[in-house]
Each structure stands twice: as structure tokens, then as C-alpha cells.
Computed example of a mutant assay.
Amino acid sequence: MSSRQYSATGPAPPATERDWSAKQYAKFLDERTRPARELAARVPLTSPKRVIDLGCGPGNSTAVLVERYPDADISGVDSSADMLAKAKKTLPKLSFGLANLETYTPDDGPVDVFFSNAVFQWLPGQSRIQILTRLVEGLSPGGVLAFQVPNNLSEPSHVAMRDTAAAPNTPWTEKLAHLKKGRDEFPQPTELHDALSPLCSDIDIWETKYFHTMESHEAIVEWVKGTGLRPFLNALSDTEQEGFVREYLARLKEKYPTQRNGTVLLPYPRLFVVATKA
């Protein structure tokens, strides 16, 4: 589920801090896998020969593809060595490789399905459209690019990250100055349609908003530690991280009411695209 991207304007974290944590990501694996199942169900092909899972993470989305297409040649790529190690352990019969999607081109010719579960949002904003069109161009005629991305930058969970980073007179004010605006918004459906329609015979775009039941506000923190909160925490020392998380948690408690049974509902919108090459 990962691809390398932190900030176009600020310094990247040290190499030792860049990798994703498969263990942290897996804390909410069912919730993270559900969109992959729903995306795979909308891929119109019934018997593709070659399927590649882009940003395969720990292999949860790849396993969905294996279930849907048991006779296909299925492989996965990711930029995280930790994620790939987990994927290889989970699906030892499949091929997994290290790759950066900004430059990735598959070997051995065209592909029938490019599949991606929550990765393209991490790519640099100015190159997303270019990368997506390049992938469609690499498909076999009638092949499919199917992907989903979180569409939650305006949700309180992510607004609170940026507000916490921008809080004045904190130990992290200077270190997180480049993250106050967060990552770039993902292209709108109209932009995606205009970019892909010259290459495609059909484009299916939709949005789904999930309402995940969380045990507590602390559980929301654990969720985003595996994804959106990583660039903020990676730039801080352990002590600074504790202070940042404490203030971030306080903001979450202001934004998300506790349900009568003590749980917290986390709204989580996701954007889905299934594009079929002409």
C-alpha cells in the first residue's frame, strides 16, 4: 500500500525512517482490505492472464486478486522492504519486487490488469496524472487500470494533523513547517476522466464513504500511524512524537463524538476508478 512520497518542499526523513511498518498497517487490515475487495469486484475482466498489484503492501490486496483470478499470473510491487517481506511470507508462491511507482515499468511486455489499493495518493501531485496515463498505455488492449485512494484530506482526522503541525511555540513547529499544508489533493474525477478518456473505452468512477467503528479516539491515532501520520512523526524525536500525538489526540476528541456505547465512528471516504483501455 505504499510508495515513496513525503514532501516536495521539505527534507525527506533519513533512509532508516522511510520504510513502512507492516505490523502497524496490519492493526486494521480488515478495514484496509475491504476497499480492495470492492474494487476487484468491479474489474470487468473475467480471465486476465497477467495481473500486477501496485503498492501491494503486506499482500492483503494481492490475496484478494488471487481469490478473484486463481489462474492468472499475479505479482506485486512495493517501495517498502518490510511490506514485501510480509507479502512474501503470506503468499510464498507469488513474485514480489521492490519498485518506485514514479519510474516503474513492468518487464515482459503488456499487462492485463494494474491494480492498486491506496497508493497513488502518496505520489508527487504534479506527476500523478502522468503516471496513471503511462500505466494505461502499458496495458494490453482491453486491459484495466483499477485503483482506489483515500479521499480524506478534508476530514477532521487529517485537518487535525496539519493543525497540530502548525501549532505555534511547540518543539516541532520548525521541523514540521513543510508539512503544514499536507500532501496535494488528489486529482478530481473530472480531471481523471479528461486525462484517461482519450486512451480508454470505459471509465467507471465512484466514491464510497465508510464509517469505521473504532474502540476509542486512541484507536484512530493507531490507524493513522500506519499511513497519514507517518510523515509527521518520522520528522520528530521520540519525545517530540509523544507531545505531538498527545496534542493531536486532544484535537480528535474535540472533532469526533463518543457514541453511546463508548465507541467512535471514523468517516473514511475513498475514491475508486476502473479504466478500461480501448
Rank of each mutant, 00 (worst) to 15 (best):
Q188K: 14
Q188E: 09
L84M: 03
R32K: 04
R18N: 02
L91T: 09
V64T: 11
A63K: 07
K23P: 00
D19G: 01
S3A: 15
W122N: 01
F114Q: 01
M83C: 02
Q121N: 08
S140P: 00
Q126G: 10
L236H: 07
H158E: 15
D53G: 10
A167H: 06
P168Q: 09
Q5N: 12
T190P: 00
H212I: 09
G226T: 02
L45C: 10
C200T: 01
L65F: 13
R183A: 09
L233W: 11
I129A: 11
W122C: 02
I129W: 14
P168G: 11
G143H: 06
Q126S: 09
A36L: 14
R4Q: 13
Y69D: 04
K253T: 10
A166Y: 06
M214Q: 08
A26L: 04
S201M: 08
G142R: 01
R134Q: 12
V245Y: 01
G125Y: 05
R162E: 11
V119K: 07
A87I: 04
I74A: 10
A15E: 15
L94H: 12
E31T: 10
N234S: 14
M214A: 11
Q24T: 15
R4K: 13
L135W: 09
N117Q: 09
L196C: 12
D202N: 13
L192M: 06
A165E: 00
N152W: 12
V113R: 10
A167S: 12
V274R: 11
I129K: 12
P171I: 00
F232T: 01
A12Y: 05
G143I: 10
K225D: 10
K27A: 09
L65R: 04
V245E: 14
F114C: 02
A26D: 15
L265V: 13
G142N: 09
K27D: 05
P92H: 06
Q24Y: 04
T227D: 12
S95W: 08
R251D: 08
L98G: 09
D194A: 11
S216D: 10
A63Y: 04
G109H: 05
F28Y: 07
S157F: 08
T258K: 11
Y104I: 06
Q241P: 13
L132Q: 13
H178L: 12
Y25C: 04
T62V: 05
V245C: 06
D78L: 02
L192H: 12
L252E: 01
Q188Y: 10
Y6W: 14
F147K: 01
V136I: 04
T90D: 12
E207W: 00
A177L: 06
S7R: 04
K86C: 12
I74G: 07
Y25K: 06
L29Q: 15
V159Q: 13
D78W: 08
T276W: 04
T190F: 00
L91D: 04
F96Q: 02
R270T: 11
S216P: 05
A275C: 00
A219T: 06
V136M: 02
V66I: 14
V273H: 09
Y210N: 05
W172K: 01
D71T: 13
E242F: 00
P141E: 13
E67D: 06
D107A: 15
M83V: 00
A166V: 05
R37L: 05
D184T: 15
S47R: 15
R260S: 10
E17M: 04
E185Q: 01
E240Q: 11
D30R: 14
L135F: 15
K23H: 11
P14H: 13
N169A: 15
